[in-house]
């Protein structure tokens, strides 16, 4: 695990510690994390490039809570320095491979948490994590009936009875 320091004020790491980033969660928790851990995030990388252009460093405000952010940092730390095909913008799409073993364990969380992680990963532009979460959610509903899918994912059936029972909808989708 990387050194992740929670600080109580909004002190931005100084010039001497330029490899540290300050991330601020929506519940106003300040988390310092090494820059290269978060380099998997295209969003963070773009922010850092912006800092370099202006020679100024700022805290990066993120619209999700610290417990979601910490989970994302845990993922990025685990794959620190690893090449993941999904995160390579030049690589072809990874196709239909299964969820990696470590990811399976990592994503063994309740559904709400899973959805929050995928939303955060999407915001941070971490394609590999988005893909793993998407596969994990797909696994939850694969092989289930339509009604079970609604139940598992909290989706409301907003079809009218006529729409639901129309033969064309049943036959052709």
């Amino acid at each position: 695990m990387p050194t992740i320091v929670s600080v109580d004020d909004s002190t931005v790491p100084g010039e001497g510690s330029s490899r540290l980033l300050l991330l601020v969660s929506s519940d106003n928790k300040h988390i310092v994390v090494e820059e290269d851990i978060m380099s998997r995030s295209r969003f963070i990388s773009k922010q850092v490039e912006g800092f370099e252009a202006t020679s100024q460093r700022h805290a990066i405000l993120l619209p999700f809570s610290s417990f979601v952010l910490n989970k994302v940092i845990e993922y990025c730390s685990h794959y620190r320095g690893y090449y993941l095909l999904e995160d390579d913008p030049d690589a072809a799409p990874p196709g239909r491979s299964p969820v990696r073993e470590w990811d399976q364990e990592f994503l063994d969380v309740d559904r709400n948490m899973l959805l929050r992680i995928i939303k955060a990963a999407h915001y941070l532009e971490i394609k590999s994590l988005v893909g793993s979460c998407a596969r994990a959610i797909a696994d939850m509903i694969r092989g289930k009936t339509t009604e079970e899918m609604r139940e598992i994912l909290g989706v409301e059936n907003d079809f009218t009875p006529e729409e639901e029972h129309s033969p064309s909808s049943k036959c052709t989708g």
Binding site: N112, L115, K119, G131, A138, I141, R142, L153, G154, V155
Partner: peptide, 23 residues
């Protein structure tokens, strides 16, 4: 609070549906 899946951006939801259909 329950976070219904339909709150996800369309792009992610599409991604999930692809995995359901493809696998």
């Amino acid at each position: 609070r329950l976070f219904p899946i339909n709150d996800l951006p369309t792009e992610i939801l599409s991604n999930i549906l692809r995995y359901v259909v493809w696998s």
